[in-house]
Design a binder for these strands. Structure first.
Length: 905
DNA sequence: ATCTCCCGCCATGTT
DNA sequence: AACATGGCGGGAGAT
């Protein structure tokens, strides 16, 4: 029971508990944090003092059944959670403690023991959930949220040591950054996409994919003959990764850890391991990584030589720790891979899809200007405060769906192909949704409040419109942002160019329609043919007990599960065939090393890990449904998709194109640039600012410091959005009448800004006060504005560019997440705004041919990007992609933009 | 038996 | 020296 001993010495002078306490529930996720509140919090947060920790944990963890229940409940229900928090944790806690104490006294040994929380209840995952519940996924940017470790530990009644585990992982994702001793800044998921993108890039550069495959191959080839170590070693050497590539923590230039302490160990463990682990998911095709492989790779990098069991074991332990946190973040999910050797634990990526560098490049065309983001946010907050509920009624605007009905079969096919990708986004959606709902609640009438699972309804359906869609990259798919039927949230769907004209709302219905089975089969076949990898049988176990075995048609399976649409007998037949094939292959595997890529593991859809809390049932289930994957297929598919993406497939390829439409309700990432600590954040300029600085000033300015200087694009007024972020801004209804352009700052909702993270390029441009003509031109040129489309007129200003005065603009942007790009539909409105003297923001441009703007920084950024202060390496690998960013990027810029499709509703 | 992974000792860094 | 961080692995609950 000396538990508290080490981890948290009690008396810390830091962080007076008072401030912290008051701050405590800091930014409640659900509650729309108002500026004032945040400000208060900030001001309150005192010096970094560690509150004398009254850690009576030893006395009896508050982990009484009651506590547990509360925790679980709160974890499951944001509303409840918030309520709880508001209610005052202190009180409840003390009560609990007391109760517990009593319990302890009255129950003797055994009994007391039983009353104690089970191991599960103390899991890191659960703890992480609690931790995350304390902060909003997308905190308002200027109002940073501080995290006082001591306080958190105390409130969560855990040792500080545990908090470190969580924080370290969060740090690896740049969701938090260390400000000082005992203090961290909470960034939420604002930087997540960028971070992931960067990680993916680094992972690619480090050839993790190959390494993984090599390892798998070895295993596959010599089932048990060689020890993993040797395999690993060999693999590593073969690939030529590692030794030198020992990667250190990836951070952004200017964002390095300030504390030496952190630096000292930063290249070690948890943080780095976490990043690497994530990289593995991002680079591997079926985004499933077994612990074993991950451990080997991680160990391999460190010390290829001494790979002993204990080390391996330790690595596994750490991976579990990390996995728990990542699971809580809903980035991964535990699954089991069943192969001949047996079942082995693995994790499946369920986070947002991350475009590869190359892929992203094309898509990154548009980046939301930081200032816009801020504006959006400002608007939002403003709205909350000032604006009257305009249209309280939440209508499920299914609008735009006219198209859905018309949804071409092609689309469906595409959807099928990419469905898996959607899964990943679902989580994001969920998150975004939450945010949205919060916002909505604030803005709209109570009725409009939605549950986290549901999409939020916009205050006024009519007002809410679909945002424009920005064409994305080379990818032929055009993202279309549509209002969510259920919610007022718009989201973007990527359609193939050919499909572009059709806009659909992301809705269940949509999904269903979009996924025809037939296509899947065809695709599959093609893939199979092409694939060099032998199929192996894979099985996915699901929580519900379904076990699917199959190698092919994972799509079908998936489809079936996801959409419930099709389960064609045919597909099953195919499946069986595939299985047979696989078996044959397996039998021959020894003889054929060439086939060797041991991809085929059976993946089982796993039931939700016991630990994981299923907060959002819908989401989870959705994700789960889509879980079944057949590695091979996946892989193949992925490859194809990838290829296509890179090549920028021609339009006719639409079938295969992966529609990544993940309608993801997204929070607007505001200012990545502003973000204090994102190490991975590519945006060059941002990094230059110290955290503190960034927060304070920029917010008000509403303008990102980043922008202008860096890119000058002929087209002013346009803000390039990066597709990579996939974030679309959802623009809530405006209070503006169609004709009327008078948008009061307060009334301005959000601008449809597409946010993207240009990892390499950091192309964030934002122009202010673009001339309308220019905008029009640009839009047309880009194809954003369909020739026939009439942009204006629409009373509902969906995508409203944000007014420069951003300060008062409310942001709703958080709702939508665009994967690739968005098109702003209401250009007219935008123009209007501008005309009115408001500066308009949003319009994607970078890709426009005419805009050659290439950030000079890109190069710099790239270099720094991965630079790991502590480490040597880092990225020697960058070299692996010779063409790296700059050039490629430039080229990209020059590439004529493909036509953007705007769905007009 | 294996999988998970909590727990907390203790080394390392910071203040 | 006291405190902050966090590497690490024993060992026990969960399966």
């Amino acid at each position: 029971m000396d538990r508290c001993g080490d981890a948290g010495p009690q008396g810390k002078e830091n962080c007076s508990s008072e401030p912290c306490k008051s701050t405590l529930k800091t930014p409640l996720k659900q509650s729309a944090t108002s500026h004032s509140v945040l400000a208060e919090i900030q001001s309150n947060s005192g010096p970094l003092t560690t509150p004398p920790k009254p850690k009576e944990i030893p006395l009896g963890d508050p982990w009484t059944p009651t506590t547990n229940l509360k925790i679980l409940i709160s974890a499951a229900s944001p509303e409840i959670r918030n309520r709880e928090q508001k209610k005052g944790l202190q009180d409840s806690r003390s009560e609990i403690l007391e109760a517990n104490h009593c319990l302890q006294e009255h129950l003797s040994g055994d009994e007391y023991e039983k009353s104690q929380p089970s191991r599960k209840e103390k899991s890191l995952g659960l703890l992480c959930h609690k931790f995350l519940a304390r902060y909003p996924d997308y905190p308002i940017t200027g109002e940073s949220n501080y995290i006082c470790l001591d306080e958190v530990a105390e409130e969560l009644t855990v040792e500080r040591r545990r908090i470190y585990d969580i924080v370290n992982v969060l740090e690896s994702l740049h969701m938090v950054s260390r400000l000082a001793k005992n203090r961290y800044a909470w960034h939420g998921r604002h930087n997540l996409n960028k971070t992931l993108q960067t990680l993916k890039k680094v992972g690619e550069e480090n050839k993790y994919m190959q390494l993984i495959q090599l390892i798998k191959k070895r295993e596959y080839e010599n089932e048990f003959e060689l020890d993993g170590e040797k395999n690993e070693e060999t693999a590593t050497k073969t690939i030529g990764i590692n030794e030198h590539s020992e990667m250190c923590f990836i951070e952004l230039p200017g964002m390095e850890f300030r504390a030496a302490s952190v630096n000292s160990r930063k290249d070690k463990s948890l943080r780095v391991m976490s990043q690497k682990f994530v990289m593995l998911f991002l680079v591997s095709t079926p985004q499933i990584v077994s612990l074993e492989v991950a451990a080997k790779i991680l160990i391999g990098e460190d010390h290829v030589e001494d790979l002993d069991k204990s080390k391996f074991k330790t690595k596994i332990r750490r991976l579990y720790d990390i996995a728990n946190v990542l699971s809580s973040l809903e980035l991964i999910k535990k699954v089991h891979i069943t192969e001949e050797r047996g079942r082995k634990p693995a994790f499946k990526w369920t986070g947002p899809e991350v475009l590869s560098d190359i892929q992203a490049r094309g898509k990154q065309i548009f980046t939301r200007h930081p200032s816009l983001m801020k504006l959006v946010k400002s608007i939002e907050s403003d709205r909350r405060i000032h604006s009257a509920p305009t249209s309280p009624v939440k209508t499920s605007t299914t609008g735009c769906d006219q198209n859905s009905s018309t949804f071409p079969s092609k689309m469906a096919q595409l959807a099928a192909i990419c469905k898996q990708q959607l899964e990943g986004q679902s989580s994001e959606l969920k998150m975004k949704t939450k945010l949205t709902s919060n916002l909505e609640c604030n803005l709209a009438a109570p009725e409009s409040i939605l549950k986290s699972e549901t999409y939020t309804t916009s205050p006024s359906p009519s007002l809410v419109h679909s945002l424009g869609v920005l064409p994305l990259s080379h990818n032929s798919m055009s993202p279309v942002m549509l209002p969510h039927p259920h919610a007022g949230v718009s989201y973007t769907i990527y359609l193939h160019p050919s499909q572009t004209q059709t806009a659909t709302t992301y809705s269940p219905s949509f999904v269903l329609q979009s996924v025809p089975c037939t296509n899947v089969t065809g695709v599959k076949t093609a893939l199979e043919v092409n694939s060099k990898v032998p199929f192996s049988k894979m099985t996915t176990e699901e929580g519900d007990g379904n076990v699917v075995k199959n190698d092919t048609n994972f799509l079908n399976a998936k489809e079936k599960k996801v959409t419930k649409i099709e389960s064609t007998p045919r597909s099953f037949l195919k499946r069986s065939q595939a299985l047979q094939e696989n078996n044959l292959i397996k039998k021959c595997k020894h003889g054929q090393k060439s086939l060797g890529v041991p991809m085929g593991e059976s993946v089982k859809n796993e039931r939700p890990s016991s630990r994981a809390l299923h907060v959002d049932t819908e989401v989870v289930s959705f994700q789960e449904r889509g879980q079944i994957k057949f590695e091979k297929l996946d892989q193949n598919m992925e490859c194809c998709c990838d290829k296509e993406r890179r090549e920028g497939f021609p339009e006719d390829r639409s079938k295969t194109s992966n529609t990544q439409e993940r309608p993801v309700p997204f929070a607007v990432h505001a200012h990545e640039a502003l973000f204090p600590s994102g190490y991975l954040i590519p945006i060059a300029r941002c990094t230059q600012h110290s955290n503190e600085t960034m927060f304070s000033n920029k917010e008000k300015a509403g303008i990102c410091s980043l922008q202008p200087a860096t890119y000058s694009s002929p087209i002013t007024g346009v803000i390039p959005v990066t597709a990579s972020e996939l974030t679309a801004v959802n623009i809530p209804a405006f209070h503006v009448t169609p004709m009327n352009i008078m948008v009061s700052p307060s009334s301005i909702a959000a601008a449809p800004v597409v946010n993207s993270s240009c990892l390499n390029s950091g192309h964030t441009h934002s122009v202010q006060n673009p001339s309308s003509s220019i905008l029009n031109f640009t839009l047309q040129h880009l194809g954003l504005i369909p020739a026939g489309v009439q942009v204006s007129g629409n009373p509902v200003l969906q995508s409203l560019p944000i007014s420069p005065k951003a300060e008062h603009v409310n942001t709703v942007s958080e709702n939508v997440n665009l994967q690739q790009g968005k098109v702003v539909k209401n250009e007219s409105q935008i123009l209007d705004c501008e005309l009115n003297g408001k500066s308009v923001a949003v319009i994607p441009l970078q890709q426009q041919p005419s805009v050659p703007a290439k950030p000079k920084e890109s190069q710099v950024v790239t270099e720094n990007f991965f630079r790991t202060p502590g480490g040597p390496n880092t990225i020697a690998s960058l070299s692996s992609f010779p063409e790296n960013s700059d050039r490629a990027f430039q080229r990209t810029l020059t590439i004529p933009q493909r036509k953007l499709e705007v769905s007009d509703d």
